[in-house]
Design a protein around this nucleic acid. Sequence first.
RNA 1: GGCGGCAUCGCCAAGUGGUAAGGCAACGGUCUGCAAAACCGUUAUUCUCCGGUUCAAAUCCGGAUGCCGCCUCCA
Length: 481
Amino acid sequence: MALKVYNTVSGKKEDFKPLEEGKVKFYVCGVTVYDHCHIGHARSGIVFDTIYRYLKTKGYDVTFVKNFTDIDDKIIRKSLAENIPWQEVGEKYIKSYYEDMDALNILRPTHAPRATEHIGEMIELVNTLLKKGHGYIVDGDVYFSVDSFRGYGQLSKRSLDDMMAGARVEVDEKKKNPLDFALWKSSKEGEPSWDAPFGNGRPGWHLECSVMSTKYLGNPFDIHGGGKDLVFPHHENERAQTEAATGIKFVNYWIHNGFVNIDREKMSKSIGNTLLIKDFIKDYHPEVLRLFFLSTHYRSPIDYSEKSIEDANNVLHRLYYTQERALETQKGKTVNPARYPEADELQNKFYEAMDDDFNTALALSYIFELSKNINKMVDDKDEGLIPLIAYANAVFLSLSDTLGLLKDDPGALEAREKVHHLSRIGLDVSFVENTINERIEARKNKDYRKSDEIRAMLLEKGILLLDTPKGTEWRIKHIVP
RNA sequence: GGCGGCAUCGCCAAGUGGUAAGGCAACGGUCUGCAAAACCGUUAUUCUCCGGUUCAAAUCCGGAUGCCGCCUCCA
């Protein structure tokens, strides 16, 4: 099975061939730590986590680097606004970042370097660029000269002429070309600064990624990822300055994920429609977000809406119930799984889909099919099928795991959600149990009117009753708060 | 103004030359006191429109319309 990856540079799917057999060097632009993460960060995190997991599933030895940009204008602004040292701003939001990413079951990278730990290497890079004639100094600022690098614009597919015609670039008299970007910024009084041969100051954006990626992965390396918005200017500039300095190719495959809209509108701070990960997971299981994102191809934009999230929530729970039912059949028994060819076939299709530029939407459909198969066998209530169920369930869980899904224990998850839901509506478990017992009495007496009333009353509170052969069970039917 | 992307069932969504996956919703059935859950079945001769290439097009080319992104910090 050959993995194909869409490469932003060529605009095509390409066969993936790592530089070194069996190994993948993978870099993703992390966050600038000046605020809590929103669901846009979650999408990027989940997309690249899925890619990371899949590369490992395919047997690659992956070195995965995701950086923190812990020095920039926004951090300085935040530090002034909140009157705390800029270092503390970074610390605070790095902590917040890990809380969110861990909650979303996003695997930690091999290395998570911070910009401020690599200032020395950044200064070296600026020096090299100056020496090679790709940079120039004006009033203590150092700029990269885009005209000095022939390949400028190749990644974002635009020519310098096109961009000049765009005319939305602010004209800065200091720059030789309006598109030139800062490599080093002189600091004002009271701002963080580092000593450098070309003057005290701090690194420009882009520099940290050039330095940290090549430091931990070598030059060139295999995959560089990030949000679509980073194609220009961030990755274009990163590429230009790195290749200008080294004279060789920087990255083989560029991968970019699409954006998250909210109710068909771009999510942005100015519109005020950002949704924080922390707020989302107050209401939903974190895997709901993962399932939602993975049901659309990573390069397409995705529209967040309450309805879509409710759908994803229902689907996720259905998958957990499938697993629970499968485990139920094996309870108290020693089961030797027996090969179930249909599961193998679905597994192959799953891998084929993932090999085709990480088509998670298609891959998920095979998980649904597997879930259906398992439910069917459970419904049959045939003891002889149990080894097949065990086998299918193992495949089901392993495929889910490569997408980072179904990590929770179904029983524990259900119990947690029950407690959560009941506390939100101000009831407790004993109330539900007493009410259910009341209904059981009514049913015994064939008082179906009362029985149905009780059921309707509980449903209004988001509590769904199921009369199974084993008795009455209840579930939470998620109600949007 | 420049560059790029998208348009597939009521909704979400896969599908880049070989005759329309999947999910949600809806409807019918099995099961049930009735439901629910689960399963089975039904639901796009058709992929925004117009033209072209081809034996064959949702998929390629040209045009039109509509939506979106980037060009400024942004995942």
